[in-house]
Each structure stands twice: as C-alpha cells, then as structure tokens.
Design a protein around this nucleic acid. Structure first.
Lengths: 221, 221
DNA sequence: TTCGCGTTCACTGTATACGGTGAATCCTGA
DNA sequence: TCAGGATTCACCGTATACAGTGAACGCGAA
C-alpha cells in the first residue's frame, strides 16, 4: 500500500487520474472499465477506485449498466448540448448572484483576461482563445463560494473543456463581444441583465450543437 | 450477509434508509455519522454504507470534514434558499424543454391534481396541499427523461420535501394560481413563458426564505 | 490547580478475500 | 453442421481485516 505522501486520498487520486484519462483520450467513449485492470494500472486496490467510478458516474462521465459494469460515456453533440443547457441556467444564476457584490478586482481581472486575447481573436488563434474561454467561465464559477452552485458546475465545466478539446464551436469574434457584455452587466451590478447575458451567450452555442444533432453528425470518434 | 431478495443493491438500500432517517428526524442536523455504528444499525457492512454516504454528501445532505468524518448537514433558511435558487432555474429549464412537446394526458393529470386540492386551498388544509405541491414539481421533473436534468433535480427535490416537512412557506391561495399559470403556459407550448412562470414561482418562495435569513431566524432545531 | 506530554482509543481509508451471477465456451446429440 | 444445455470463467458486490492518525484522557511536574 502506498503511503499518503500527500494528504490527498487515493480516491481523489483515482478520480483525477480517470478524468484525465478520459479527457486525454486514453479511455475512449464506450470503452468498458474493468475494475481490477484499472486498479493495477493505477496502482491501487479496487476500493478507492470504485468510489472514484461512482463519483464520475454521478457526473455523467461514466455510464453504469444495471449490473454495475462501467463504460465511458458517449459525448456526441446531443449529450454536450444537454449539459450546456444546464450550464446556461446555472451560470446565468452565477452571474445573477455575483452582480450585486462582485469586487472591482475581479472585474479588472476578467477585463484583462479578455484584453490579453484580443490579438488571438483578430489573428483567429483558436487554441489561445479557447483556453481563455474556459478560464473566463471557470473563474466566474469559482467566485461563488459558500453556495452549492459552485460544486454543481465543476463537473459541467469539465464537459465543456472536453467538448472544446475538439475545437471551438463558435468563432472568437462572436463570443468575444458576448463575454464583454457579461462583464459590463456584472460591473453595472444588474442581476437580471447579467443573468440574461450569460444565458443567451451559452444558448447561442447550444443552437449550433443542436444543428449538428439534427444534421445527424456523429461524434468525431 | 443478507441475500439480495430484491435486485436492489445494498448501497441503494443504505442510501434510501439514510435519506429517510434524515428526513424523518431520526438523524438530526449536525449529528455525526459513525460508519461502524450505522453499519450494524442497518445490518450491512461498512462498504456499501460508505458508498451511500458519499452519494448523500454529493447531494448536500451530509458534510464531510477534511478527515472524512460525516455529519448531517444543517438546513436553515439560508441553505434551503440556496438550493431553491438552483431549483428555480433548473425547473424553469424543465418547463422550457417540456413546453413544445408535452403530451395532453400530462396536462390533464396536472390539472386534475390541482383541481383535486382546490377544496384544500379553500379550507386552508395545508397538509393535503403540501403533498400536492411536492407531487406537482416531482411529476414535471419526471417527465424529462433522457436528460441529465432529471437526476440533478432529484436530490434537490428531497430538500424541498424536507423544508416543507416543517410547514408551507407560502399560502396555498398564492401558489395555487401560479401552478395554474405554469400549466397554462405548458399547454400553450410556449417555452419562454413556461420557463419564466416556473422561475418566478420558485423565486417568490426564495424571497420569503431570504427574509427569514435576514431576520436571523435560526432553524427550528 | 494547571499545563504539558505521552498513551490509548476510536474511527477512518485501504487492501484483500469471498460468494454469486451472467456470459461465453465447449461438448453432445441430432 | 447446428442447436441446446451444462460448465467454466470473468467480474462485480460485499464483508472483513489491517494500518495509520487525530483526539481524548490521564498522569506527572511546576
């Protein structure tokens, strides 16, 4: 048994490791997760591994059959759109809650973040912009402390990161302006406007995803 | 070891049992959950019990210390309001998704449900009305299948049931009309109106809860 | 009495052993 | 050759054993 060099639990370790394996494509969609194999691969016993799997299942990264077999979930445009649907309203709520009291320094950070990727927008450097996009949403989420909302959004963000790993869904010049609008609304301290701006922002992306679903486009495998 | 009389897993059993113990007040807020004690009390080993605890923790019924000790979460007006905040937007989303395609029979059921409690509203029979209230929201949630939204709302509904166990937060004559409005919007098939009706409905309750929080009213203990 | 320190103990995380069950495989008879 | 049934096997849920770690408690010194 491995000594706990860090104070982190082995379950946490497995959780993050598995997540990374899914994100990094080392575990592909639909692949079966055999507990014993994975356990030796991660150097732990089945006990903490099982906990990690259960957690990932609740976060929709893993599907279980009635008999307990675990498979990596499939992420097509449909599934991503479903998750984004929840993200839209929950991140909208985030903005609503933040607007009245958000501190100036956070506004400044968000502005500087967007300013720093302006060249990427103009040069259409999508990799750079994508990271900023994720950071923008993650940063906002992390500002809501002492509220169960934060934890709920964590797992959804991962799915966002995953979907973006395959490339941006909308052009930077489009979403850039929307981010600015959100920041403006937060700075103005208007909960309704801020909430609406965020919801509309994400729902425009959902529209794209739904188009792909309707077109029957399969996940890029 | 108990034989699996039902196909249900022991973890599921523990989960429901614990939930019920919390709801029923057999486990009170702030009480520590000692794994071994609970295990013998439920007639199982610690293994499935631990899974159940982990699950309840993710659903905010149980808080864990850094060292893994589990305590029953505290549910004051503040915590309930926080959860209701998420319920508002997620159930709003439920209505938005349902509106375009909801079947007539479901509309009819909801109408008959409300009609059946009309006397309770007029007679101010709050116990009867409360059950119908929970049923109204639960029924709608269950209509959304094939979407992660349903599972996400499950745990939140439990907290609603819990808060209502202590009595209604608003007068039936107030919420009754709002329920009707929601049904009307669903029947009309208008996603925006249906979403807004649900959100407003729940947010009015949140306002009440926030008043109690501001007044510093402690949980009834 | 009170503070400090060591010992004990309770309780957790983790490993491992065990029994059961569905699926795959192989054998047998037509 | 092919269908059907028995047997094996792989894998999961659960129980239990073990080791580590704070916290509580008691004891001795100031």
């Amino acid at each position: 048994m491995r000594l706990p060099l860090t104070s982190e639990t082995l379950e946490d370790h497995c959780y993050r490791e598995l997540r990374q394996m899914i994100l990094g494509g080392h575990l592909v969609s639909g692949e079966k997760l055999v507990q014993e194999d994975l356990a030796v691969r991660l150097g732990v016993s089945r006990t903490p591994l099982r906990s990690a799997i259960a957690r990932l299942e609740r976060e929709n990264f893993i599907k279980l059959t009635t008999r307990g077999e675990a498979f990596v979930a499939e992420f097509g445009p449909r599934q991503i759109a479903d998750v984004f649907e929840m993200r839209a309203v929950l991140e909208g709520l985030t903005c609503r809650l933040l607007a009245p009291t958000i501190e100036r320094k956070h506004i400044l950070y968000l502005r500087s973040l967007m300013a720093s990727v302006k060249p990427a927008v103009e040069g259409d450097d999508r990799d750079v912009y994508r990271d900023a996009d994720v950071e923008f949403h993650t940063y906002l989420t992390n500002l809501v402390t002492d509220h169960p909302l934060g934890r709920m959004l964590e797992s959804l963000h991962l799915i966002m990161a995953m979907s973006l790993a395959q490339g941006l869904l909308r052009a930077p010049e489009e979403t850039f302006g929307e981010h600015i609008q959100i920041i403006d609304a937060l700075e103005a301290g208007d909960p309704d406007v801020a909430e609406r701006a965020m919801i509309d922002h994400i729902r425009r992306t959902i529209a794209i995803l739904r188009q792909r679903t309707d077109a029957g486009e399969p996940p890029p495998a």
